[in-house]
């Protein structure tokens, strides 16, 4: 099975974020970019399917600027992906999910693909649009929020589930298909040191930008701001739990006026 996983470099979870000077984007200085949780799951699922279906190959694709994009591609190689493909693009351009999907689609179209896997949404902007846009651009079916993705060799179809509002949808689908994955069969694996070292030397193929006349991003970020720091937190100093509770009730009643 020819599998392509699309991943996005996103800031590591406990990063201290800052806006750029023009206020339109994220200042990448001192930010470490990593594979986010949903993308890790997508990679994990790709590797599990590769292990389950002999003769499979997993290619990992990403779009974005250096060096962050190269870093996540190498991280995916260290986990066990066979080849990496990079569609270089400025961060501002691929901030638009459809512009990102166009670049990914060029890369995907250039390689065999029975299954195109994405995380159900990106770990940073959580737009959740890329899988859908990819399906549209590649003119193949796409599904989001997928769990329990299985390959049924007998019928040569994928079977999977989607959580719906009032129950669970059970689907089957022929290849090729784009899947926005909610969850892999198990927790994502961790790369081993020898594989990490090897991944540093792995070749990374380049994918060209789309040659469309209207390739400019349709949306551009206007302003990037961080939540205002929370104020007014109050630490209760106490000796016993009873003391803490008494003080808390007093504060809720007299200061916060939560109840009379």
């Amino acid at each position: 099975m020819e599998i392509v996983v699309c991943v996005k470099p996103v800031p590591e979870a406990d990063t201290r974020l800052r806006a750029t000077a023009d206020g339109r984007g994220l200042d990448p200085e001192n930010v470490k970019f990593v594979l986010a949780g949903y993308d890790e799951s997508a990679v994990e699922q790709a590797l599990l399917l590769k292990e389950a279906v002999p003769g499979s190959k997993v290619r990992v694709v990403s779009t974005g600027p250096a060096p962050r994009t190269e870093e996540v591609l190498r991280a995916a190689i260290a986990l066990g992906c066979d080849e990496a493909i990079w569609a270089e693009a400025p961060a501002e351009t691929v901030a638009d999910p459809v512009a990102a999907a166009r670049r990914l689609a060029v890369a995907v179209r250039a390689v065999p693909h029975d299954l195109v896997l994405c995380g159900k949404q990106a770990g940073d902007d959580e737009s959740g649009l890329v899988a859908g846009a990819l399906g549209e651009l590649l003119e193949i079916p796409d599904f989001g929020f997928v769990t329990d993705l299985r390959w049924d060799a007998a019928s040569a179809r994928f079977r999977f589930r989607r959580a719906a509002e009032a129950g669970t949808e059970h689907w089957e689908c022929a290849t090729p298909v784009v899947i926005g994955l909610q969850q892999a069969w198990n927790d994502p694996r961790t790369a081993k040191l020898p594989a990490i070292l090897k991944s540093r030397k792995a070749p990374i193929a380049r994918s060209p930008a789309p040659s469309l006349p209207d390739d400019a991003p349709r949306s551009v970020p206007e302003r990037f701001s961080l939540p205002a720091p929370r104020t007014g937190a109050k630490m209760i100093e106490y000796k016993t739990p009873e003391d803490a509770a008494t003080q808390l009730v007093r504060i809720l009643r007299e200061e916060a006026k939560v109840f009379p």
């Binding site: 040191l193 990490i196 540093r200």
Partner: peptide
């Protein structure tokens, strides 16, 4: 080097 950074990052994540 990038190799050293990724080894350190892997150890940090494990820790």
């Amino acid at each position: 080097t990038p190799e050293q950074e990724s080894l350190r990052d892997a150890a940090r994540k494990f820790a």
